[in-house]
Computed example of a mutant assay.
Amino acid sequence: MSKLKGAVTVITGASSGIGAATAIKIASLGGVVVLAARNEEKLQAIVTQIKEAGGEASYHITDVSKRESLQSLVQFAEATYGKVDALVNNAGLMLFSDWKDVAIDDWEKMISTNIQGYLNAIAAVLPKMLDQGHGKILNMSSVAGLHVGASSGVYSATKFFIRGITESLRKEVGVQNGIQVSMISPGVIDTGWADKVNDEAGREAAQKLNEIAITPEQIADAVAYALDQPANLTVNDIVIHPTKQDW
């Protein structure tokens, strides 16, 4: 039996892509999922799909860049299901641009979501996990947190940040308090992100990368594997990328 059965997992960035695929996967294993994102229409559709398949899910409109929004999300999950067993810190934004473009607005959006958003989510779940003596935090990073590619300097920097905080959490709240802290670093995935790139040259580079992309469902399988482990075992870091990706 899956250890996810009956466990309550909060998933940020759950209205599409990896987050949505992860919610569907965990629910299929008997887990309870709380989906968080800003797009209510998409969240409703995914929750309906999960419930029609016999799973248990709910959603809460959430802006990860706002601390109070994450606190409200966790309070909702606890009020609805009585606990939070796991957090999938997934909400992210990838905007490519060259340094010469000085795309400050894009930089700030990525910092707000990819850095502050992760910290806000951790701050919202960690105190209760420490009190209850168990919990799982899975941070979604990227191979861009291992290798810096063209037109992705600030994005890569945010993913290096995620790698740093994950390792720190593992050594502190993992080793000392038994909280299972994991990270998954996907390669190129087709989540529709390429169409969101504002910079023309950056968008062309992103669309080119997408030609070899793997699916969100393949990453969701890895998330489920990492979370479906006994308390004495933590999957610290999984790197997954298309076979034809050379970095």
Rank of each mutant, 00 (worst) to 15 (best):
E204H: 04
L130C: 07
E204G: 08
L138D: 03
R203H: 04
S151Y: 14
T166D: 10
P127M: 04
G135N: 10
V148S: 13
T191K: 05
N120H: 09
I189K: 11
V181L: 08
K171M: 14
V173Y: 03
G164D: 03
I115S: 04
A205M: 14
N139R: 06
S112G: 10
G149S: 07
L126C: 07
T158R: 01
V148W: 04
G117N: 03
A206C: 09
V188L: 11
I189V: 14
A201K: 08
T191A: 10
I122R: 02
G145M: 00
L130F: 03
Y155K: 01
G149L: 07
S156W: 01
I137L: 06
L169F: 08
A194G: 12
I115T: 04
N177P: 04
V154E: 09
I137F: 06
I162E: 00
G192E: 11
L126F: 07
H147K: 08
K136Q: 14
V148P: 07
G149E: 11
A206W: 00
G202C: 00
R203C: 10
S151M: 15
A121H: 13
V175I: 13
E204S: 01
I165S: 08
D131Y: 06
S141D: 01
L130V: 13
Y118R: 06
I122D: 08
T113R: 09
S152P: 13
I122A: 02
A124F: 05
I189Q: 05
E172Q: 12
R163K: 11
I189F: 12
G192M: 08
I189A: 14
L126I: 06
K136W: 11
T158E: 07
G117D: 05
T158H: 02
K128N: 03
L130K: 13
K171S: 11
N139V: 14
P127D: 15
L146T: 12
P127Q: 13
I111S: 10
Y118S: 12
D190H: 12
